[in-house]
């Protein structure tokens, strides 16, 4: 890798981890496979500080303003937003289905909590995805170790608190190994 290492600038507030924003959009009519998914992923920026985060975040469209079948991914630098990545292969994700109109606010709450280290689960968080779909939008938060129930419960509780969603909102945990075997994808 010859890419320059991203570092906080002078006077900026460093983050615990560097992160990358990714964007993907499903091409209508194309077969979904792991390789086409990978090809559709576009890295749209890496940041190491709060200020660099806003320089990226403020210049990309809010998820609620996107149309069609689009996803934003925010992952720690070095982790590709794919099940097969070493950081993800034993992991899973919390899935929250959102009524239309909530995506931008919920995504912002989640992203702020993630870069601000609000989850308090060590190195467990891998990244987050907001998936814009026709009927509803889907927020997911990925962690490294799907079988660690103490960690996944803690993530769920923090997620509930920071999203501030109605108490009847359904949250579902899914291991990536299950997603691989049933070939489900949003």
């Amino acid at each position: 890798e010859s890419r320059p290492v991203v570092k906080p600038g002078k006077g900026e507030h460093p983050l615990q981890f560097n992160y990358c924003f990714w964007f993907s959009r499903r091409t209508p009519g194309k077969q979904t496979s792991s390789s086409s998914y990978d090809q559709n992923l576009k890295n749209i920026g890496t940041f190491a500080s709060v200020e660099q985060f806003f320089a990226n975040y403020s210049h990309i469209a809010r998820p609620g303003d996107l149309s069609g079948h689009s996803d934003y991914h925010l992952f720690k630098e070095g982790v590709r937003p794919m099940w097969e990545d070493d950081a993800n292969k034993n992991g899973g994700k919390w899935i929250v289905r959102l009524k239309k109109g909530l995506a931008s606010r919920c995504w912002e709450n989640l992203v702020f909590a993630m870069i601000g280290e609000q989850f308090m689960v060590g190195e467990e968080i891998c990244g987050a995805v907001i998936s814009i779909r026709y009927q509803e939008d889907i927020l997911s938060l990925w962690n490294r170790t799907a079988h660690d129930q103490q960690t996944t419960s803690r993530i769920r509780d923090t997620l509930k608190r920071i999203l501030n969603l109605p108490p009847n909102t359904i949250m579902e945990y899914k291991k990536h190994s299950e997603s691989l075997s049933d070939n489900s994808s949003f």
Partner: peptide, 21 residues
């Protein structure tokens, strides 16, 4: 070690900083 934690309200303040543009 120590973790770098930022609360939401602090991030909102940084959003308006000239460095963040």
């Amino acid at each position: 070690g120590t973790r770098i934690v930022y609360e939401r309200h602090f991030l909102m303040q940084c959003r308006n900083s000239p460095l963040a543009k």
